[in-house]
C-alpha cells in the first residue's frame, strides 16, 4: 500500500464520502445522486462495468473505499457524456469518473494491468514532454505497454492499418525523431508543475 493511501485511510476513517468530496474532481456532486440508474443504462460500455456509475455513487456513500478505488469500472468511461446529458440531477458524471480514476491512480491502488489506465498515463507523459501529442510514439508505446512479445504481436496485427495511415500521409515514420512540439516547453512544464503543487497543497488543507 502506498504511503499516500495509508495516510488517506487514517485521515478519513469511515468517511469515504468526505474523502471523495475533498479529493476527487467534482466529488462534491456524489451526494446528489438519487439512484435512478439512467447513467448506467446510457453508457456505451455499460455491460463491462463491474459497478456502473450509480452503483459507484451508492458504494461511496456506503464507505466501500477499497472496492471502489481498486475497481476497473471508472476506467471504462469513454467520455461520451451521454450520462451527463441525461442525468436528471445534472451530475457531471464523466468528470467524477475521471476524478475517481485519477485519484485511484495517484494512490497507487488502481488495478495494475488495466489497459486504459496504462494508455491514459502514456498519453499524459507523451503530451507533457513536447506540449503536443506525438501519435507515432504514442502508438508504439501503446503496442509495447504489455511487454515486448505482446508488443510485436500487436504491432504486426496493426501493420495494415499503419500502412494505410502512412500511405494517406496521416502518419509519418519521421515523427519518431523529434516531431511535433511547442516552442516554449519549459514554460509549459513550469505551469504544469505549479498547477500540480497547488492542487496537492489544497488537498492537504482539507
Amino acid at each position: 500500500m502506498s504511503n499516500l493511501n495509508t495516510e488517506m485511510v487514517e485521515k478519513y476513517r469511515n468517511n469515504f464520502l468526505q474523502e471523495v468530496t475533498a479529493n476527487v474532481e467534482e466529488g462534491e456532486w456524489v451526494k446528489m445522486c438519487m439512484q435512478c440508474g439512467v447513467c448506467s443504462g446510457s453508457c456505451p460500455l455499460g455491460p463491462y462495468w463491474d459497478h456502473p456509475p450509480q452503483e459507484l455513487f451508492m458504494m461511496i456513500r456506503a464507505g466501500k473505499r477499497e472496492e471502489v478505488l481498486t475497481s476497473s469500472s471508472m476506467w471504462m468511461c469513454t467520455s461520451c457524456y451521454n450520462c451527463v446529458a441525461r442525468c436528471p440531477r445534472g451530475l457531471p458524471i464523466t468528470h467524477i469518473m475521471h476524478g475517481l480514476a485519477h485519484y485511484a491512480d495517484r494512490l497507487g491502488i488502481a488495478p495494475k494491468g488495466q489497459q486504459t489506465r496504462k494508455f491514459a498515463n502514456l498519453f499524459w507523459d507523451n503530451l507533457t514532454k513536447t506540449g503536443r501529442v506525438n501519435e507515432l510514439r504514442l502508438g508504439i508505446s501503446l503496442y509495447f505497454m504489455n511487454g515486448f512479445a505482446a508488443g510485436v504481436k500487436k504491432a504486426l496485427s496493426m501493420a495494415g492499418m499503419g500502412m494505410g495511415m502512412m500511405k494517406t500521409k496521416r502518419l509519418s515514420p519521421m515523427e519518431y525523431f523529434g516531431g511535433h512540439s511547442i516552442k516554449d516547453k519549459k514554460g509549459l512544464q513550469a505551469i504544469l508543475k505549479k498547477a500540480k503543487e497547488i492542487e496537492l497543497a489544497k488537498e492537504q488543507k482539507f
Binding site: T116, R117, A120, N121, F123, G131, K183, I191, A195, K196
Partner: peptide
Amino acid sequence: PDWNCCSASIGFAGGGELPRLALSAR
C-alpha cells in the same frame, strides 16, 4: 501561436484537474 495539446479526454490518469485545466488555459 505555440498552442499545446488539450489532453483530450484521456489525460486524466496522469494529469489532475488543475494541470489539465491549465493546458487549455494556456
